[in-house]
Simulated assay, not measured.
Amino acid sequence: MTEGVETGRMGRVAYARIAPNEDLVVGVEKLCLERGFRHAFVRGALGSLVDAVLARADGGHQQIAGPAVEIVSLAGEVRTDATGAIAARLTGVVADPEGRVHGGPFVAGANPVCMTFEVTLEEWLPD
């Protein structure tokens, strides 16, 4: 394993909305592309999902049935690789309609926004 410390500085901040039925992970990637953020951190979020699918440590997925699976917390980053491909890695805690709490990485393409989803992104400018 290679370890290191990346140096850089924080750039612009974007406050944006992801529309209903748009995937959470794909929506964050799209927002970064629209704003020209090559790398970014999620600094805040508020909203709910129709249903949620989280990755498990064993490689499987956990499906959380809605409607209205609430996001309790969301953290993550967006990175652009050498080919220009952008990928968001988002991890969070959600509460199902019965109030049970679940956590883990969100599976891209499987987490549709319920009504609206507000997110704050901060651009990262590596040296």
Rank of each mutant, 00 (worst) to 15 (best):
T2F: 14
E3W: 08
G4E: 08
G4M: 09
V5H: 06
V5C: 07
V5W: 01
E6W: 00
E6D: 06
E6L: 07
R9G: 03
R9S: 05
R9H: 02
M10C: 04
R12Y: 02
V13M: 06
V13Q: 08
V13P: 03
Y15A: 13
R17T: 15
R17D: 13
E22D: 14
V26N: 09
G27P: 10
G27D: 07
V28P: 09
L31D: 08
L31K: 10
L31F: 06
C32I: 02
E34W: 01
E34Y: 01
R35N: 12
G36V: 02
R38D: 11
R38Q: 07
H39V: 04
F41H: 11
F41V: 15
V42I: 15
V42Y: 09
R43Q: 13
R43C: 14
A45G: 12
L46K: 12
L46I: 10
G47L: 11
G47W: 06
L49C: 04
L49A: 05
D51Q: 07
A52C: 06
V53N: 03
L54I: 02
A55Y: 01
R56I: 00
A57R: 11
D58K: 07
G59L: 02
G59A: 01
G60V: 00
Q62W: 05
Q63I: 13
Q63A: 15
I64D: 11
G66Y: 03
P67E: 01
P67C: 00
V69Y: 08
V69D: 09
V69G: 10
V69H: 10
I71Q: 09
I71G: 11
S73G: 12
L74F: 12
L74V: 14
G76E: 08
G76F: 02
E77T: 11
E77Y: 10
V78H: 08
V78G: 12
R79G: 06
R79A: 12
T80P: 11
T80Q: 13
T83N: 05
A85S: 12
I86M: 14
I86C: 14
I86F: 06
A87H: 11
A88D: 11
R89T: 15
R89K: 13
G92D: 00
G92S: 04
V94S: 11
V94F: 08
D96M: 06
E98Y: 06
E98G: 15
G99P: 14
G99Q: 07
V101H: 09
H102E: 10
H102P: 15
P105A: 14
P105H: 03
F106Y: 00
F106A: 03
V107P: 01
V107F: 02
A108F: 04
A110L: 11
A110R: 06
V113M: 06
V113P: 08
C114V: 01
T116K: 10
T116W: 11
T116S: 15
E118S: 15
E118P: 08
V119C: 09
V119G: 09
V119P: 10
T120I: 13
T120R: 13
L121G: 09
W124K: 05
W124M: 07
W124C: 05
W124E: 03
L125W: 00
P126C: 01
